[in-house]
Nucleic acid binder design. Sequence first.
DNA 1: GATGGTTTCATACAAGTGTTTGAAATGCAA
DNA 2: TTGCATTTCAAACACTTGTATGAAACCATC
Lengths: 223, 223
Amino acid sequence: MASDHTRTSILAAAERLYADRGFGDVTLRDIVAEANVNLAAVNYHFGSKDELIAELFVTRSIATNRERLRELKAAEEEGGGRAPIEVILHALVGPTLRGCLGPENQRSTAARFMIRASIESVPPIRRIKNREIDHLRKFAGAMRRALPDRSDVDIYWGLNFALAMAHHTIRESERLTKLSEGKCDLDDVEDVVARVVSVATMALTAPRTEAKAPARALARDAR
Amino acid sequence: MASDHTRTSILAAAERLYADRGFGDVTLRDIVAEANVNLAAVNYHFGSKDELIAELFVTRSIATNRERLRELKAAEEEGGGRAPIEVILHALVGPTLRGCLGPENQRSTAARFMIRASIESVPPIRRIKNREIDHLRKFAGAMRRALPDRSDVDIYWGLNFALAMAHHTIRESERLTKLSEGKCDLDDVEDVVARVVSVATMALTAPRTEAKAPARALARDAR
DNA sequence: GATGGTTTCATACAAGTGTTTGAAATGCAA
DNA sequence: TTGCATTTCAAACACTTGTATGAAACCATC
């Protein structure tokens, strides 16, 4: 294994293509063409296409989770074991949003690949993805410490909605721009992060009965 | 065209399979097997696989939009041209959530197909999907009338977040159940609708400066 | 410089895809 | 019934996919 040149070329090319075009549209032949290597190299170095995807996903998954946890840990230590809910949510959605939105040149292939992975859910990834639940539980724990009065159910719903807003905004950024005729500026990433964090915080801190009861009654009528 | 039996069988089978397994995993041979018709029937009746998908999507798209607009119109007429924001949001996310969540037996194939379509975004659908923007604009208009003080930007972000929470919850319902160890009850559809509407309403009605400024300052620091 | 394991390469393979074909079957009007 | 358009069917087609093969090239070690 003198130099991993071929191996790393394949990984880089595959990640770039998958991030750009999704798993469904990219073939091994596309990848080896992009990487300037021979077709058989993929099976030689990775065993199969699925194992290539899995390796890509595992690597990036670990890196992403580490970055999010780093932000979270830092915030919690600073606050003596308890970080404000805004900061926790910020650590959760910030890295991904930053990597996927913003001006073309500063987007990260890694983040965009991870979003594809979270959307298209191809078999090799689905098998691995269950581990991510443990990672989210760490955030749920931090949120519980920040909001000891909230029920577990509310915590999980808040977590779910925070990820929902972040991921959906990334996926549908183009449509939102078109719909708003450019008024929503998806290039101002920090504004987007602030909006998501703000709404998620409201969802988690608003008094339950006041805001929810009317909507619930409404739903009953419509049934 | 004595009886559309073959045609309708294909449409029904295709919708069911696509709703269950997604576009990527379903072949024409799967569809004709499910429909008990000959393979060539698809191309005979629809021209191509893409045109079959397109017809399916157009039909369902029209039906869904009509249902949402019916709820919206009714609410606006009742309120003399201006419906409460909760009711508008309810008309936007209610039908889809109801069709995709809840006990197995009462879910609708149509709604689940539409969610697949909105997620996987296969070429024939992507081409049609632009029209949906006009449909969303009608909701944006109603929301503007309900909240005349809000800026257009805030309206579009609120709309975006409402759809985000609804769609993401549908897509990741299984993971949310697992993450919360069953504490979040995805079968109680009206509770889910109420939660989404509630949070979206807060996002749209909360005073801007109060809730958003700290988060924005936070983001600046993290940069 | 010869040796032997590692890596590359062109090529082939088997399986699966959407589509086409031309004949057979069907249904309906004259 | 005859004639004709519509619809069904089995079979084949052309193409793409991931994977496998065996020879060639490479490269460190002796």
